[in-house]
Simulated scan of single mutants.
Amino acid sequence: MTAFRTTRDVRSTPEGLLWEPSARWVRGRRGEVTLVDSRHPVLVWEPDVPVPLYAFPRDEVRVDLLRPARNPPTGTHTGSRIFYDLELDGELLANAAWTFPSADLAGHIAFEWFGRVGRGLDHWYEEEEEIFVHPRDPHKRVDALASSRHVRVEIDGTLVADTVRPVLLFETALPTRFYIPREDVRLDLFVPTAHHTACPYKGTADYWSLRGDAPVAPNIVWSYPDPLPAVAPIRNLLAFYNEAVDITVDDEPQARPVTPFTESLERRKRN
């Protein structure tokens, strides 16, 4: 019988890992082949990495398809020393899996996620729902709330959006994002791009860049045309990076936050 836990069970290791047992049924596939079918997964947070990964008991992994890595990397995944190549249908996927050095996680194997790093297993499921990029953090919350706040967005002194019907998206550890109806955005000032990103909490986003030569990063505006059900109110609305534009809410200017996106936005602007 599985013991029921009424509190979070996050544990730490001497190597700096945090880990927590999960009650979710998790499966990982490469194409149509199931490599992981686990009812006892463990969530693992590596130092200085804001999102978790799963690790799985060996007996819930197709270890028969794993081979000792021919060229294991160094300095990755918290000093892991044992890496595996995945051999499947004549294809060899280098360093697709690994074990963590911690004794607490002995007997567990983790996998790369294609949606996160461009290699590894390309389909993941929690229960019957497909998940993307990385596991959703049980300590993180995302809420999309309709609002009547007056939100104005300016770029280099030009008003590009003005609304009193935004949807505010509150996401743990990130600034509030203001999603604005398209009718309240000067879309004539922007051009759609081929850029897309995927989020395990929201879905897949489309992007726009500002026309002209204003000193702002490309892909400054995004929208989720088909968001995940939990954030359905943001469907087809437009959001701006608070880190790179000037936002006023109810006549109160908002400070530009410093987030993990700040450096990449500055770098994209310079390029």
Rank of each mutant, 00 (worst) to 15 (best):
R11G: 11
T13N: 06
T13H: 08
T13K: 02
A23H: 04
R24S: 12
V26R: 01
R27D: 06
G28R: 01
E32V: 12
L35E: 10
V36I: 11
V42E: 14
E46V: 02
P47M: 08
V49P: 14
P50H: 11
V51W: 09
Y54E: 13
A55M: 15
D64S: 14
N71P: 07
P72N: 09
P73M: 08
G79H: 10
R81S: 10
I82C: 07
P101I: 07
A106E: 08
H108N: 12
I109F: 02
A110W: 12
F111D: 00
W113P: 11
R116C: 05
R119D: 00
L121N: 09
D122G: 15
I131S: 03
I131G: 00
V133C: 04
H139L: 12
K140N: 04
R141S: 08
R141V: 01
V151G: 05
V151R: 00
R152E: 03
R152M: 05
V153K: 04
D156C: 10
R165M: 01
T176F: 00
T176Q: 01
I180R: 00
D184K: 07
H195Q: 10
C199F: 12
Y201C: 10
T204Y: 04
A205W: 00
D206H: 07
Y207K: 01
L210N: 05
P215Y: 03
A217H: 07
V221T: 03
P225I: 13
A230Y: 01
A232F: 09
Y241D: 07
V249P: 00
D250M: 11
Q254N: 05
R256Q: 11
V258M: 09
S264Y: 14
S264W: 15
